[in-house]
Design a protein around this nucleic acid. Structure first.
Lengths: 204, 204
DNA sequence: CGGTGTGAAGCGCTTCACAGCG
DNA sequence: CGCTGTGAAGCGCTTCACACCG
């Protein structure tokens, strides 16, 4: 079986939940407990865990620490992965905030902005470079992930630039569909669309 | 047929695309053109349009202006809707940025923060209030949508507060599942999860 | 022809339901 | 008992494929 993007998403949620619970000292957990926290069915939880090859036992359910590690070794690469953030506006800063030191295997290694005011400033341990330094920094720091937080008008050319430098996956916050080669994975976060959805369903 | 949340999301995308194209002066468009812009199949586009009861014609496809209006009258309410943003950090400011005056029928009418420094400041025409003023402002401004951009630890109590004040839908940026009554619609935007998905697929 | 509109088929994800087990 | 692991069923979304039309 190959793993769909939904499964990866849920695994990421499970892991986050498990690390939170681990801190309380609890050592085991049942699928229905995980399920009620993240609001999906327990069958779904069990199937997801089955998919990564981890197995619990009927007595104690799952060992929290082991399961978290299993998920980690499944969704994280063996080597750490590095991302570049392009566009250090409010959104860019918020993203750096969210991530600073959150995950050992995944970090934002550099940020870029066209505004000279921002360049060579360091925000949460992440230095901001000029766009001229782009190719060099991406190569040197072995960056494979791009985060697009630039104005809509610059999004496509930012994507092109990132991909040309060798990036393999994009997280796109610009409210516009990017056109790139199909080997590149894109995840869109479309805040406007999400708010419109909420507005629609808030009145049903 | 009732309309799923995916359909609403796509309709929102179509509308945004259509307004962009309308500005070029083009007046008609085919389903396959829409499809190639937003990267879904033309059959999907036609079916979505069918769902809202609009109909094109085999000669010219769809009239851009009419279709955009049709989508608008479907996903927008007759009355304008108002949202409240809680948490005016970098993310909160970015969200206000994104939205300021974007849609006539949907706007962020007020923001809230516990930091007195931010209170009564106006960002992009959106005034920041203290949490003490919360219930009053929400009621006065007829707010039905809440946007949660507070630190994770405060997310649940922010949600409770919003709902108690009468909000019917939530857009949640905190990386934690919120537990609320099932009549409340929640849309989660989980940036960490999204980045982990990109990281995973960037190396397949 | 090259479009739209749409019943029907296809497909992937989710849930059911139960065997197996401590 | 009450849990996990999982084949099979169910369900909803997407795509196919074709009638119809200008």
């Amino acid at each position: 079986m190959d793993i769909s993007d939904k499964i990866i998403g849920r695994l990421s949620q499970y892991r986050r939940l498990l690390s939170m619970i681990a801190e309380t000292g609890q050592s085991n957990i049942y699928s229905h407990q995980i399920a009620s926290f993240v609001k999906i069915s327990s069958a779904q939880v069990r199937r997801d865990i089955m998919n990564i090859g981890y197995t619990g036992n009927p007595n104690n359910g799952y060992n929290i620490k082991d399961l978290a590690e299993s998920i980690g070794s499944f969704i994280d690469d063996a080597e750490p992965q590095f991302a570049a953030l392009v566009g250090v506006g409010n959104l860019g800063k918020a993203i750096i905030d969210y991530f600073s030191g959150r995950r050992p295997k995944l970090s934002i290694a550099a940020s870029f902005d066209s505004d000279p005011q921002k360049q060579s400033r360091v925000i949460h341990g992440c230095r901001c470079y000029s766009l001229e330094e782009f190719d060099e920094v991406v190569r040197d720091k072995n960056i494979t992930i791009g985060i697009i937080a630039v104005p809509t008008a610059d999004a496509q050319k930012t994507a092109d630039m990132l991909i040309k430098a060798g990036v393999k996956g994009l997280l796109n916050f610009a409210p516009v569909p990017l056109h790139v080669h199909s080997t590149i994975y894109i995840e869109d976060i479309d805040i406007t669309m999400s708010l419109e959805k909420v507005a629609y369903f808030a009145r049903q």
